[in-house]
Design a protein around this nucleic acid. Sequence first.
DNA 1: TAACGCATCTCTGTATACAGGATCGGGCTG
DNA 2: CAGCCCGATCCTGTATACAGAGATGCGTTA
Lengths: 242, 242
Amino acid sequence: MSDRKTQFEKALLGLRSLVMSGEFTGSTRLPEVALADRLGLSRTPLRQAMDQLVSEGLLERIETGGCRAARFTLDDINDAIELRGVIEGTAARLAAERGADPAIMLDAERVLDRIDTALARPDHIDFDAYIIENAAFHQILSRLAGSQLMQREVDRVSRLPLASPSAFLREQELIPDFSASLLRAQHQHRAIVEAIRAREGARAEHLSREHARLARRNLDHLANAGPGVATRVPGLSLLSAE
Amino acid sequence: MSDRKTQFEKALLGLRSLVMSGEFTGSTRLPEVALADRLGLSRTPLRQAMDQLVSEGLLERIETGGCRAARFTLDDINDAIELRGVIEGTAARLAAERGADPAIMLDAERVLDRIDTALARPDHIDFDAYIIENAAFHQILSRLAGSQLMQREVDRVSRLPLASPSAFLREQELIPDFSASLLRAQHQHRAIVEAIRAREGARAEHLSREHARLARRNLDHLANAGPGVATRVPGLSLLSAE
DNA sequence: TAACGCATCTCTGTATACAGGATCGGGCTG
DNA sequence: CAGCCCGATCCTGTATACAGAGATGCGTTA
C-alpha cells in the first residue's frame, strides 16, 4: 500500500469533513453505500467512522436504523463552550497543582509566540496560522494535566461540535472589535500558562473559564447577527436545520 | 428473533462486564474470534463493541492492531472523579440558572427518597438498591441541564472507568465510618436538588464539587489500604496491572 | 549450545454476501 | 376521488470470506 493510512482513517477524515461541510444538513438518513462508493472504500470502515462520529456527537442515530447529521440548538453550542472552559480549566488547575512537565511548558510558550506573530498586525491578521496554532495550544494544554484520562477528555471536548473558534473566524467582520477579541484571548492564554508556571491552580482555572466566556460572547454576536448568518458559516450551518 | 436486543447491544454488555470483571487484566491482546464465539455472535458486532469501549476508555488500542484492557493509574482515577464533579456541577449550575423541568425534579426527589430507604438502617444498608438508585440519581441529574449535549457528556463522564462508586461499596469495611460517608453523600444530593429548586446556580455547582471531593476521599482510603486491596475490588483490579 | 532464518500459522483489517425490515409507490376498493 | 393494502425495492445489521501483516517455533549453522 502506498498510503500508510488505514481505510478507517480515510473514512473518518472524509466523512467528518463531508458532514462539517453541511452537505447533509437536511435531516435525511446518510446512505452508507453511496458514501462508501464516494469515498472509495467499503461499508465496513465507513460504518466504523459513522460510529465514531456518533460518539463524538457530530452524527446521531435514527431509531429505525442508520444515522443522520446531528442538529444543534443554541443551548447545545453554549453548553459545549461552557464545558470546554470548565474541563480545560480543571486540567489547568491540576497541572498547576501537580506541576507541569517543563518540556511541554516550553512547547506551549513557543506556540504562544507563533500566535503573537499571527496577530502582530491588527489589520492583516494571519487567520490560517491563527486557527492552526490556536488549536495546537489547546492540544498542548490538554497534555499539561499529566494523566492520560484528562488529556483524552480535554481533546474530546475540544472536538465537540461547533466549539471550534474557526467558525467565528470565517465571519469575523460580524464581530465588533474582532482583532481586539483575539488579542484578549491571546492574553488569557499567556496568563493561563503563567499561572501554571507559578503553581496558582485556582487562578489558572478561573482564567480558563474567562476564556470560555469570551468565546461565548463572540458566539452571541454571531447569533444576534440574524438567522442568515448561521447558514453562511460552515460550522454553524447545522443551526439552520432546526 | 425472540430477543429484542441487537447483537451489538449484547456484545457491548457482555464485553463490558467481561472486561470489568478483570479477566483481561494482563496486558494481552483481546482475541476477537474467541470472544465472539464465547458471546455467541460474530466478529462484526463484537468489534463494534470494542470500538465503543475504546472510546469510553475501558479498552485501549495496540499499535500493532487489536486492543487490550486499559490500565489506569491513581491519577487517572482521581481525574475521573474530579471531572465528574466538575461536569456534573456545571450541569447543576446550568439547570439552576435556566430553570429545571419540574417533572424531572420530581423524579430526582423520588429517587432520593428511595436512597433514603436504602440507607435507613445504618447497620443493614441495602447496598444493591443503593448502587442502582444512586446511578439513577446521577442519570437524572444529567437530564436537568436541559440541553442534549450536556446530558450526553454527563452520562459519558459518569461511565468513566472506576469513577463508579460500586467499587467502594464492595470493600465498604475498609472505609471508616462508611455508612456515615454514604449519608453525607445523600445529604449532598438533597442539597444539590434544593439549590437547583432555589435557582442558586453557584451553590449547586459548589455542592457537586464537594460531592466529588467526598468520593475522592473514599478512594484514598481504598488506595491507602495497600496494594492487595485493589486486586480484591472488581473495578479496581485493573490498578494492579501496573 | 546459542543464534539466525525461514516457514507456518494465527490474527486483524477489509470486502462482500445474505437476511430481515422499513419505505415508497401502485393498484384496488369503498 | 380518497384511503387502504400489498408488493417491490432499498437499506441496514450481521455473518462470513479473503488478504496481508505479525508472531511463533523449529531446523540449521557457526
